[in-house]
Design a binder for these strands. Structure first.
Length: 550
RNA sequence: GGCCCGGUGGUCAAGAGGCCUAAGACACCGCCCUUUCACGGCGGUAACACGAGUUCGAAUCUCGUCCGGGUCACCA
């Protein structure tokens, strides 16, 4: 054995396999030409984040449009920051938003696929095998520096205004000998394994980012850590091994990774792996006192995807909004294909924005209103109940007490040619439909200032006598028009506008009186339709109540 | 501070040297339609960060300045 081989044996004596074993275990995927293999690799250090959802969407749709595979991999190499239930929350969240997963973790506890395990903590032996091979070739070495020592050199570098890091002459253990290492290990010293970087800062590397375009950076010359002292790899190393073995073709991740690309490219080259295509996704930003900053888990409630669920934003609407951010041509496509699933959209990574977009709730509201307006009342019923069941059980009870009635309520101004665009999120529905339900209805008979109480009373009394729930909209309104002149109101709005002084108001004002009496609201959808749903008895009751309390 | 990336209305954005008197969407404002509110229709306010250069011609190419973002861990 030569010195390098001795070193490898000293550092990783338990590793008996070779990289060839794993290369054979995970052969290339049999996929059609041009199929893209993508993935997200969340770490279970918190709940599903908007940025993660966004990245998942972009990865999912690039795999879909190319006939490829999208898989999930759990990056749980940092045991210190891991939180309980993190995996479940992330994967369940993806499922909830309709992001289907072909392979890897498909639920919090279940994984599928031929390229597993899909959890890094279960892959330790694989990483260590590759590290050992690197040491054998003299391409990696042990480093015994303590956190304090590293801190010390960083301070010196800062003092001298030098680039910080473990490189060049600062790489203390770069040339450590087998004998030296052996002595330290026998002395019980912990160590990490570092890459013996062959790079130089003088050299430039150029790579084509599939989203951002051509990027030029100095070559990596840092002897960064491959294996931490607990024997677990760093992200960089795990990324190279996993994405190679799992045959990822496109690494689409947050652009906070862009500065690590030189490290990654170097690693792939040294390991003899084919370099995947990289695409770096700009973060979703948030405006904070005029300043623009990346949306943050700690400060912003909407950073956790759960926020949208609680608010009652429909998951499909959120995805469609995210698509408008992901692809500048998505809105045009949506207008041209109003009924297609977003999955049919021909997504092009090059159309992605290079700079981060501000999260725009107004736009989300607009997208949501448009989408919800297109739903049938049955579909609205299903989704509303689904939401209420989880987030507003009381309302859920009201909605499901008489499902047929509720469906008729939801059908007002909905299953028609031009449905209302009124609801943006399910949490608004309770307030919006309250007057339909005994338990939620709060009578209010406060009439507009321009209508005298006597006139209101007189109108309601007359109207009550002729009211017929069988009337269609036209008949319904003509009855109001017939009463109008009798109490000094214009039957036609135009009449009134032509000479306002001649009238106390117009038929429209009287319909407002009726509206308030029946619903307690000044604004509602089509009143005639509402009264039909409410039924004769209820309407009469409410009208009488109004007459008595004005 | 070093290294990257970016900068078109309030927001998202089209834009590849002449088609730019700069599109569209959201938001906002006005008018019309209208049983209210919406919807819809019509219209309006509002932008190429700044300075040099290249060119007959620059939002577009180059350089500089300024501003914003990211990153510089045994975190991902």
């Amino acid at each position: 054995m030569n010195e390098n081989e001795l070193m490898a044996e000293l550092l990783l004596p338990d590793i008996k396999k070779t990289p060839e074993f794993y290369e054979a275990l995970y052969p290339a995927r049999k996929l059609p030409e041009g199929a893209r293999v993508t993935r997200i690799a969340p770490s279970p250090t918190g709940y599903l984040h908007l940025g993660t959802l966004f990245a998942a969407l972009v990865n999912r749709i690039t795999a879909t449009t190319s006939g490829g595979i999208f898989y999930t991999r759990i990056e749980d190499t940092d045991k210190k920051r891991e939180i309980e239930g993190g995996i479940d929350d992330i994967i369940d969240g993806l499922n909830r938003f309709g992001i289907s997963i072909d392979e890897g973790f498909v639920s919090g506890s279940q994984e599928t696929g031929e390229y597993g395990p899909y959890k890094q903590s279960a892959r330790a032996e694989i990483y260590r095998t590759y590290v050992k091979a690197l040491i054998q070739k003299g391409l990696a070495y042990p480093c015994f520096c303590t956190a304090e020592e590293l801190d010390q050199t960083r301070k010196i570098q800062e003092g001298e205004k030098l680039r910080t890091g473990y490189y060049g002459k600062w790489a203390k253990h770069r040339d450590i000998t087998y004998e030296q290492a052996k002595a330290l290990i026998n002395g019980g010293k912990p160590f990490v394994v570092r890459l013996k970087s062959p790079g130089s800062e003088e050299n430039k590397i150029i790579f084509e980012d599939v989203i951002k375009g051509k990027i030029e950076m100095p070559e990596n010359d840092e002897d960064f850590v491959l294996l931490k002292s607990d024997g677990i790899p760093t992200y960089h190393f795990a990324h190279a091994i996993d994405d190679h073995l799992m045959h990822t073709t496109h690494v689409l991740r947050g652009d906070e990774w862009i500065s690590s690309v030189p490290k990654h490219i170097q690693l792939f080259k040294i390991l003899g792996f084919k370099i995947p295509k990289y695409g770096h996704i700009s973060p979703i930003m948030k405006s904070d006192n005029g300043a623009k900053r990346k949306i943050s888990k700690r400060k912003d409630p909407e950073a956790a995807v759960r926020f949208f669920a609680e608010q009652g934003y429909d998951s499909e609407c959120v995805i469609n909004y995210l698509m408008t951010i992901a692809a500048s041509d998505f809105e045009d496509w949506r207008r041209a294909n109003p009924d297609e699933s977003y999955k049919k959209f021909k997504f092009n990574l090059k159309k992605m924005s290079v700079s981060g977009a501000l999260f725009d709730e107004n736009k989300l509201i607009d997208v949501s209103k448009n989408m919800i307006a297109k739903l049938s009342s049955g579909e609205v019923f299903t989704r509303l109940c689904e939401w209420a069941k989880e987030f507003d059980p009381e309302f859920y009870a009201v909605l499901t007490e008489d499902a047929d009635y509720t469906k008729r309520v939801l059908a007002v101004d909905r299953d028609v040619a031009k449905p209302r665009k009124d609801i943006a999120k399910w949490s608004e529905a309770k307030e919006y439909f309250a007057y339909f339900f005994e338990d939620l209805y709060k009578p209010c008979v406060e009439m507009p200032e321009n209508i005298a109480a006597n006139d209101a009373k007189a109108f309601l009394t007359e109207y009550k006598a002729v009211y017929d729930p069988a009337d269609d909209r036209q008949e319904w309104f003509s009855k109001i028009k017939e009463i109008a002149p009798k109490i000094g109101f214009a039957a036609e709005t135009k009449e009134y506008k032509a000479d306002p002084d001649k009238f106390k108001g117009h038929a429209g004002d009287l319909s407002t009186v009726l509206r308030i009496s029946v619903t307690g609201r000044r604004n509602t959808p089509d009143l005639c339709g509402i009264m039909q749903v409410l039924g004769k008895d209820e309407c009469i009751k409410r009208i009488e109540n109004a007459i008595n309390s004005i």
